[in-house]
Design a binder for these strands. Structure first.
Length: 436
DNA sequence: GATCCACAGGAAATTAAGGGTC
DNA sequence: GACCCTTAATTTCCTGTGGATC
C-alpha cells in the first residue's frame, strides 16, 4: 500500500482559492477591539465620564476596575482609550495624553514596572531589568514626568494588578505612583488598576487605597444570552454569511457561561472550532465542532501547562502521579510524596533534592493550578498532621505532556520503591535523602 | 488535661545570577 | 575589579495545629 504524499503547494492553493469561510479571522482573537461592546454600556459610560475631563485638560480620577476573567475589563478600557485619542486628534488638541499599558502578569515587580514606564516615556534611557537602585529610578521618573507631562496627562494602566509580587512591600509601585501627583504638582497622572480579584483591595495600605480608589467600577460576569450576543457580533465580522450554525453559537455561549461567564473562553472555543472546519474543507460549523474544539482546548491547555512547569515541580508531579497509578488504595501523604520525590531525583539526571519545606510550597502551587487537590488531615499521635493529596489529571494528559521529554519519558512506567514498601514516614524521607 | 506526632506554613535569611557605577 | 542593587529561588528557623495516646 502506498501512502499519499502531502502536497503543501496544493494545500496552500486550496486554502486561498477554495475553502473560504473567514472574512476577518482576527475578529476572533481575544485582543481584537470591536466597534461595539454589547452589554457594557454602563461601564463604557462611567469610564468615558472619568477619562473625558482630560479633553478639558483636567486631571481624571484614578480608577480601580474589578471583574472575573473574560468580563471585558481590558477591552472596555482599550475601547474608551481609542475613542478618546481619536477625539483629541479630531479636535486638533495639541497635548494628546500619553498612555502606558502594562500587564502585571508579565511585568511583576515594582522595579520592572518603574523601568517599563521610564523606557516608554524616554526610550533613549534603556533602563535594564535589574541593577539600578530604586531611589535613582524614582528620581528619574520624577524628572521625566516634570519635563514631559507638564501640560498634558499620563494614563498608566496596570492590568492584572493582583499579580504584582511585592504588593505588600513598603515601597511598592502603587505607593510610588500614588505620590506622583502630590510630589510633582505640574504633572497629571491617572492610574487605572485592573484586577480579577474582587477582594484585591482588602490587603492594600490605606494610604494607597484612598489615593488610588477614587473611582471603582465592577464588571459582572456575562450570562449565556449576553455571551451569545457578543458571539453574534463577532461572527458577523469574522465569517462569511451562513457558516456558523445558530445551535453551535448557543452551545458555545452556554459552555462559556458555565465557566464563570468568560467571553474570552467562548471566543477561543469558536476560533478552534472554525479552524477544524477550515482544515477539513467544510462549509458549516455545527455543535459537534464546538464539542470537539472544547475537548482539544482543555487537553492542549493542560498539556502546555505541564510542559512549561519547572523541572523540580515536574518531579513532584510525577511522584504524585506514580503513587496514584501504582498504589491507588494508599492515600498520598506529604511524607510518602517526599520519599518518592527523593527516589525519583536520585534516579534522574542529577538534580539537587529540595527541602521538605520547599516541596510543600511547590505542592501548594500545583493545587492552585488545579492539577491536584489536597485535604489537611490530622491523625493524632502516631501519624500526626499531614495532607492527603489527590491527582486530578488523566494518564492521557501525562503521556502527551511527557512522552517526548528525555528527563521524564522513562518514568512513565517506572514503579517507585515507595509504592512497594508501605512502611514509610516523613523521617524515612529524610534518611532517604541523606543516605543516598 | 498534658503530651506527642507529623507535618503546615509564615517570615527572615541566604544564594546565585544579572546588571549597574565608579 | 570592587562594590552596590534587584530578582527569584530556596533554605532555615520557628510557631501553630488537630487528634490520638498516655
Amino acid at each position: 500500500m502506498t501512502l499519499m504524499k502531502f502536497n503543501i503547494e496544493q494545500y496552500f492553493e486550496n486554502l486561498i482559492n477554495y475553502n473560504i469561510i473567514f472574512k476577518n479571522r482576527d475578529a476572533l482573537n481575544t485582543s481584537y477591539i470591536p466597534d461595539s461592546l454589547p452589554h457594557r454600556d454602563t461601564q463604557i459610560k462611567l469610564l468615558a465620564q472619568i477619562f473625558g475631563v482630560s479633553l478639558k485638560n483636567a486631571q481624571p480620577s484614578n480608577v480601580f476596575i474589578y471583574g472575573k476573567t473574560g468580563t471585558g475589563k481590558t477591552a472596555v478600557v482599550k475601547f474608551v482609550t481609542k475613542k478618546l485619542i481619536n477625539k483629541f486628534i479630531d479636535q486638533k488638541i495639541e497635548s494628546v495624553p500619553k498612555w502606558i499599558y502594562i500587564n502585571c502578569n508579565e511585568v511583576r515587580t515594582s522595579y520592572r514596572i518603574l523601568a517599563t514606564i521610564l523606557n516608554r516615556l524616554e526610550p533613549r534611557e534603556k533602563i535594564p531589568p535589574t541593577g539600578f537602585p530604586r531611589d535613582i529610578l524614582i528620581e528619574k521618573l520624577y524628572n521625566i514626568m516634570e519635563n514631559q507631562i507638564k501640560n498634558s496627562i499620563c494614563f498608566i494602566i496596570l492590568d492584572e494588578i493582583d499579580c504584582l509580587t511585592d504588593i505588600n512591600s513598603k515601597n511598592n509601585i502603587l505607593y510610588i505612583l500614588s505620590r506622583l501627583n502630590e510630589t510633582i504638582p505640574s504633572a497629571k497622572v491617572c492610574i487605572i488598576g485592573i484586577s480579577n480579584l474582587l477582594d484585591f483591595k482588602k490587603d492594600l495600605d490605606p494610604r494607597i487605597l484612598s489615593s488610588l480608589s477614587e473611582e471603582e467600577i465592577v464588571f459582572p460576569s456575562y450570562n449565556a444570552k449576553e455571551i451569545y450576543d457578543i458571539l453574534i457580533e463577532r461572527v458577523s465580522v469574522a465569517f462569511i454569511p451562513n457558516i456558523v450554525d445558530d445551535g453551535a453559537l448557543k452551545l458555545c455561549s452556554a459552555l462559556a457561561a458555565e465557566e464563570n461567564g468568560d467571553a474570552r473562553r467562548a471566543l477561543s472555543i469558536l476560533r478552534k472550532a472554525a479552524e477544524l472546519v477550515e482544515r477539513r474543507n467544510l462549509n458549516k460549523l455545527n455543535v459537534e465542532h464546538i464539542y470537539e474544539a472544547k475537548e482539544i482546548l482543555d487537553l492542549d491547555t493542560t498539556v502546555e501547562f505541564l510542559k512549561e512547569l519547572p523541572v523540580q515541580q515536574k518531579y513532584i508531579l510525577f511522584s504524585i502521579y506514580l503513587n496514584h497509578k501504582y498504589n491507588p488504595d494508599v492515600p498520598i501523604t506529604t511524607g510518602l510524596l517526599y520519599n518518592t520525590y527523593c527516589e525519583l531525583i536520585n534516579k534522574g539526571l542529577g538534580m539537587n533534592v529540595l527541602t521538605p519545606r520547599r516541596v510543600t510550597s511547590l505542592v501548594k502551587d500545583l493545587e492552585l493550578a488545579g492539577i491536584i487537590r489536597s485535604d489537611l488531615i490530622s491523625k493524632g499521635k502516631p501519624n500526626g498532621r499531614t495532607r492527603y493529596i489527590y491527582f486530578l489529571l488523566s494518564d492521557k494528559q501525562i503521556k502527551k505532556a511527557f512522552e517526548k521529554d528525555p528527563e521524564f519519558e522513562d518514568f512513565l512506567n517506572y514503579i517507585p520503591d515507595t509504592t512497594k514498601n508501605k512502611n514509610y514516614n516523613y523521617r524515612d524521607g529524610m534518611k532517604f535523602q541523606t543516605l543516598i
